[in-house]
Design a protein around this nucleic acid. Structure first.
Lengths: 164, 164
DNA sequence: AGAGATTAATCAGAGCTCTGATGGTCGTCA
DNA sequence: TGACGACCATCAGAGCTCTGATTAATCTCT
């Protein structure tokens, strides 16, 4: 237990009784996602990549020449965000961008050899994080967790009041 | 199924067989967390708040006078990030910051009446998101989900290779 | 062929988030 | 008392993320 020498105020004021953070599914999801991001960030960092850059390279390695818009959809980010990510990848010479031979307004993006190398390096460590994580659960538990998460997703995206 | 009129390249190149995104727990967690963030962002927006601002105000309402450092810990962000959030809240006159009477290097932060009002407004809608979400599950399922998420968290933070 | 819808790319701007670095304040202990 | 360590606050810089808006190319349908 940390005793904070500068603790300044423990007084509670009367007010509306709110739902505590701990009751909220969102808190737990946020914490877990953040911890996972931290672990993955550390995993891909030796390869000189960020997590979003790793995700983009991953998709690019399987589908070289894909458009930035399509890449954004696969990586679950907006096209504007993908533009930012690609700008940094291109500056690091990990991808190449060339106009599409037929559709002039489409730009094809491909990983460079250096990009593939960085991806391989990052992927090995990222997968090891996933494997260690999965090893903490039985197959049944993993299935259950996936199903429950899928239900959360459905609830959020189908409810007209909540999601899209 | 969306047919992309601009689909540019479906050719797959041979390469290392990687773990697919769908197999990765991280993908599911990321997607769900992102959807939840989207829903919460929409929920607190009418109150003129962002999700991090809402979280900060929430803690501040329960513990007015808390230091920025302590606030950062409760909100699971770094002190630097909290500085950014507080700067925006102060600019919007939703919080007040005054030097601590005893410890000159500590600054006490408190919500203004406008801040409390915005919080109340945001909280109502944020809680409704949580309630609708929870309503999609039985009590048993919620417990299971929480336990599984807790195990993910433990695995990530206790494993010396992964977390801290 | 032309109008309108759709898609791609990207700029602008705001906000959150991190790491790294700095300077100041306070408590502890030799 | 003075050195040291812990902690607070915050600047600097990089990167990701979103919404909103613009420009251009392509497709579809009349």
């Amino acid at each position: 237990m940390v005793v904070n020498a500068y603790m300044v105020d423990g007084v509670r004021t009367m007010g509306p009784m709110r739902m505590s953070f701990d009751e909220r599914l969102g808190s737990h999801l946020k914490r877990v996602e953040q911890e996972l991001t931290t672990a993955k960030t550390a995993a891909v960092k030796p390869a000189g990549l960020t997590v979003p850059q790793y995700a983009a390279l991953f998709v690019l390695a399987e589908q070289p020449g894909i458009s930035a818009a399509e890449l954004a959809r696969r990586c679950l980010v907006t096209p504007q965000t993908m533009t930012t990510i690609l700008r940094n990848l291109e500056a690091a010479a990990l991808i190449e961008r060339t106009p599409h031979p037929l559709h002039r307004h489409v730009i094809e993006t491909r990983p460079t050899p250096a990009g593939r190398k960085a991806l391989d390096q990052a992927d090995e460590r990222a997968v090891s994080v996933e494997r260690r994580l999965a090893a903490a659960f039985s197959q049944d538990e993993l299935d259950t967790l996936r199903k429950l998460l899928a239900r959360v997703s459905e609830t959020l995206t189908s409810d007209p009041v909540l999601g899209s």
